[in-house]
Amino acid sequence: MTASLGKDLVGLEPLSAEQIQLILDTAEPFKEVSERPIKKVPALRGKTIVNLFFEASTRTRISFEFAEKRLSADTVNVAAAGSSVSKGETLVDTARNLEAMRIDMVVIRHGASGAAQFLGQRIRSNVINAGDGKHEHPTQGLLDMLTLRDRFKRLRGLKVAICGDILHSRVARSNIWGLTKLGAEVGVCGPASLLPRNVHQLGVTILPRIEDAIQWADALNILRLQLERMQSGFLPSLREYNRVFGVTSERLSKAPKDLLILHPGPMNRGVEIDSDVADGPHSVILPQVTNGVAIRMAVLYLLAGGSPDWAGQGGGVDG
């Protein structure tokens, strides 16, 4: 059995179940590295990684940076002002400049869907998508899956409801691909104005009301509601959203079982999730953050080489 991730990680859609499994399994030993007194292993010593963030993101950037540093890579953070063409240098020029500096890997977050793939096709370095537009956020999907697997010890047959703005969510897409490939059942729940038109064709169950999701699911992955959605006419108000779709302890009390609560953050407390749920006994929001570093270490480690060498499990050749 061998599996390779290839050169880039642009999303979970193009990956096989085996490849996703490989990343999750590789993340397990990396969890322990962050628990060591010296949280650093020399695996990526001498590798140069650029964190190219065209969109502000404290959480994802820090998580990647910790992952890189704990693997001993040299990192540079580039916070580019904007993605639009009016801002000057095009993405392709940025790519060529990075290439000329002989970097090994690029972690890119960009407001345009497809930006990571675009970059990956134009440079020799490994490219890791840290979120591109409304397309995918693969490492978030993977860390959600790892957190679910930690708690349930399995993904196959698990029912996960993704709640909120599915239409504009790259987290939702990565979760849908990753979970369905590993045999979990995925439901999507949100106002119909925030569900993509053909989403049922992705193999998910549509749950029209939050009460339906709570009845159906083993775990809820509650997405952040972007405030811009009001201005662009998708929703009337935050207040009404909370009243109709908010995950509250009162609603959860009607669930047939305890539901695991995930949220990719940052949270709007009192909008999509109430504080007593976010801070409650079934919330794994902080373990998600911890797992984020392990997943990113696993991805960086795997992409820095080719396919894993399973021969190590054979006989004692070495010394």
């Binding site: 061998t2 030993p29 480690y301 820095a304 080489g305 396919s307 190590g312 499990q313």
Partner: peptide, 8 residues
Amino acid sequence: GPRPVVGE
């Protein structure tokens, strides 16, 4: 070339 599997 290929990444060795990391153990515990």
